[in-house]
Write a protein that binds this DNA or RNA. Structure first.
Lengths: 175, 175
DNA sequence: GGAGTATGAATGAAGG
DNA sequence: CCTTCATTCATACTCC
């Protein structure tokens, strides 16, 4: 999937834009992706505007992000999971006459999509920014304004204190 | 890739920048988009059935189009304008306490969202009925006719360019 | 360094 | 009106 690539989201102001990764579009950090994926696998599929705002707000801790990014992320993730599933289902249908399910095939499917938490959307999804370093498995990520873009105002989302990994504790309350 | 449709339509001849696409759904030409956008920015937001019919008729000069396409276009454009504005506003509010800046989040927005139309909605903008309606292909569109105010101060929106097509002439009147 | 893939962004088309 | 789905465009990234 995604490996530890650092983020150099330089803000779009760089006119030169030759070498740097021109930030034409949002490039999520690994932590952001992790949180989003966790939320998704926890059952969140179509966050409301409020939820989007909260998620975006929390994720801005890890790097530049806008709420529309969160919105698009869930849209895309859901859609692509669906389409993957559709494709696989077609394959199954196509070959349903000839095979008897064995563990091999099962494994493949499971790995390809672990779909279908029956959409039991959580009632109250809360993201609390705590200082408890509960989970320390995250890779060492560094949120910092790239030197390429810090000069020209904007985008100095200094996180106040320099933490190794931002303390994000998300509690999901299912009903 | 799976082929379901075999119908192709190349987008508007020399309109440029349009790649050939399958014609599963309407793919507006650049001219069509321009006209629609102009109409929108002129204040038209929810065209009546008659207006839709006339716009569609005129735009058919530029390529294949149906009334429902115009209808959907205005629906989507209006909704997304609102939605974008809402999201952006929220983001701005959210980021108020982190930085003191001058042109902060404007980065992507300027490029992708050139929203913020002056929002100067002219009250009654009506497209004059030039000819009686045809209603040949439009389905059940529940567009309720708006009040008719046909009078004074009309201007004509003309698109001529350098092409060999008849000039578009949409006469709009507002009061 | 171009092909192939993953994915962010956009938008047409509905449904409710 | 609102939200959602499906499809497509655009771009970043990976891997030969």
């Amino acid at each position: 999937m995604e490996e530890g690539m650092s983020e150099f989201c330089i803000r779009g102001g760089n006119s030169g834009s030759a070498t740097g990764t021109k930030c034409g579009r949002w490039n999520p950090t690994t932590e952001q992706v992790k949180v989003l994926t966790d939320l998704f696998s926890s059952g969140l599929r179509t966050p409301s505007t409020d939820q989007i705002q909260k998620i975006s707000n929390q994720l801005s801790f890890y790097g530049k992000i806008e709420s529309k990014n969160v919105f698009y992320w869930f849209q895309n993730h859901k859609a692509r999971e669906r389409q993957k599933r559709r494709k696989v289902d077609n394959d199954v249908i196509r070959s349903e006459n000839s095979i008897s399910i064995n563990s091999f095939t099962q494994t493949d499917f499971t790995q390809l999509y672990q779909v279908s938490e029956p959409e039991r959307v959580m009632e109250t999804l809360q993201l609390f920014p705590l200082n408890s370093f509960g989970e320390s498995e995250s890779k060492n990520m560094r949120v910092h304004a790239s030197d390429q873009c810090r000069d020209n105002t904007m985008f100095s989302y200094t996180v106040g204190e320099q933490m190794d990994h931002p303390p994000l504790d998300l509690r999901l309350s299912f009903m």
